[in-house]
Amino acid sequence: MAQGFSLQAALIKAFEETALMSGISLLIAVVAGGVLGLLLYVTSNPLFIKNRLVNQSVGIIINIVRSVPFLVLLVLLIPLSKMIVHTTIGPKAVVVPLAIAATAFFARLADASFADVSKGVIEAAVSTGASKWSVVARILLPEALPSLIRNITVTAVSLIGFSAMAGTVGGGGIGDLAIRYGYQRYQTDVMLICVVLLIILVQGVQLIGDISAKMLDKK
């Protein structure tokens, strides 16, 4: 009985850690990745500020980050984590590589979301004499929003997956719990509970994403 109680506490703690790591990284990724995605988009569209040099440079940097497997990135960025959050272990330290990986991931998706907005609609908006900023804020963003929400959902789900590797640097989380108890200590029941918990979490995130995207899409 005592063990059951401690398992419950461990699960709650793991859940909190996963939510914290994924949540903060997602927030950073949406803002930073969104800005990068927008930069990719406006520098590729002649109606805005087409600039091949900037576009390709940003593209290459994003590709570099995306080519590194997350587990490697996690270790590679330990010095950076130390600089930013002054620790190399625990959930806080994991947020740095998670946020960076997710930013690169979301930047590409955001670029695709913006590029999916009808060129004709953008052209019509530009033809009215509105400033580029006004077109971005009042037309591009609302038009891309449902697609952006869907891509934020994809990023969130990936983040939950990535965060399972956080155990490598002592970050904790549900995935870590599953490995330490379920795999290393042969407690299959813990493993299964963790998996079910992850499934529920992912389904929940996906459901919220789907509903809000649908509500915002008036197409």
Binding site: S118, G120, V121, E123, A124, A125, V126, S127, T128, G129, I139, P142, E143, L145, P146, L216, D217, K218, K219
Partner: peptide
Amino acid sequence: RRNIGMIFQHFNLADNL
């Protein structure tokens, strides 16, 4: 551009507005 209006074959209205 503000002195010139333009309309298009596919209307090009913003769908979410």
